[in-house]
Design a protein around this nucleic acid. Structure first.
Lengths: 123, 123
DNA sequence: TGCGGTGCTTACCTTTTCGTAAGGGGGATC
DNA sequence: GATCCCCCTTACGAAAAGGTAAGCACCGCA
């Protein structure tokens, strides 16, 4: 797993925060959950074009460990698993707001191809 | 280099911003430059315990490419190279503020060892 | 004459991350 | 009865990131 560097002693808050969001899909997962409130595994999968089941499951597990995501398993058939943000996940999302705005500015500066949804920065 | 994924088409601003700060030492480099204004290579090296010359040079070059860092070479003997933040670097640093605060909160929550300077979150 | 400081670069190797493909157990659907 | 959906897990391998060590060109200092 990625436990080697994670949760290391951090020099500053930025490190501690980046450690939790660094991961190819974590930003988008945070976004999806912030926008939709509650999402099932397959819904997230469809919302993140290109993600593999392995990476999605892995990221979700790490984010759960980090206290960002709440995972609720309904003992049904077929099994239903619902993901949502915890309070910490929501505050993280808010803390990411300014960064998202900065990112949109950067995209604008570089004239990089913007995918339609980018306008909202992060929620 | 890391050009493979960098500057890819981004889905949201967060991605565009994270792309620029993700890197083991970039947060701390940003911090050092924000605190001290101008720093020489060897000063940065001393300010980032554990960093190798290779990684420092590589990160600085990437951050220069990304328009965050200004590099000024003085044609002297011995050569003197000074690094400072550009305007974009400074605004990025500001955008990271809330994230740093969140990170400090997280460190506090987890009772992780805090290195003294962590109190200031990121400047 | 040799060492240390300046600001890097290069080669090589390990660690971490990500992707691909497959399987699995149970139920519903065709 | 075959296939699809659900939510994953495992095994394997490629790519990216990071670390180690050495070298370089020049100079001041002892």
């Amino acid at each position: 797993m990625t436990r080697a560097s994670r949760r290391g002693p951090y020099i500053c808050g930025i490190e501690a925060a980046l450690d939790v969001v660094s991961g190819k899909w974590k930003g988008q997962i945070l976004w999806e959950l912030a926008v939709h409130g509650v999402r099932r595994f397959a819904e997230l999968r469809r919302g993140l074009p290109g993600v593999s089941e392995k990476m999605l499951a892995q990221h979700l597990r790490e984010m759960e460990e980090d206290g960002l995501v709440h995972r609720e398993v309904h003992a049904e058939v077929p099994p239903r698993v619902e993901y949502s943000l915890t309070e910490h996940g929501r505050t993280l999302n808010q803390a990411l707001g300014p960064l998202g705005v900065w990112g949109v500015e950067r995209m604008r500066r570089e004239g990089s191809e913007t995918v339609d949804a980018a306008e909202s920065s992060h929620g």
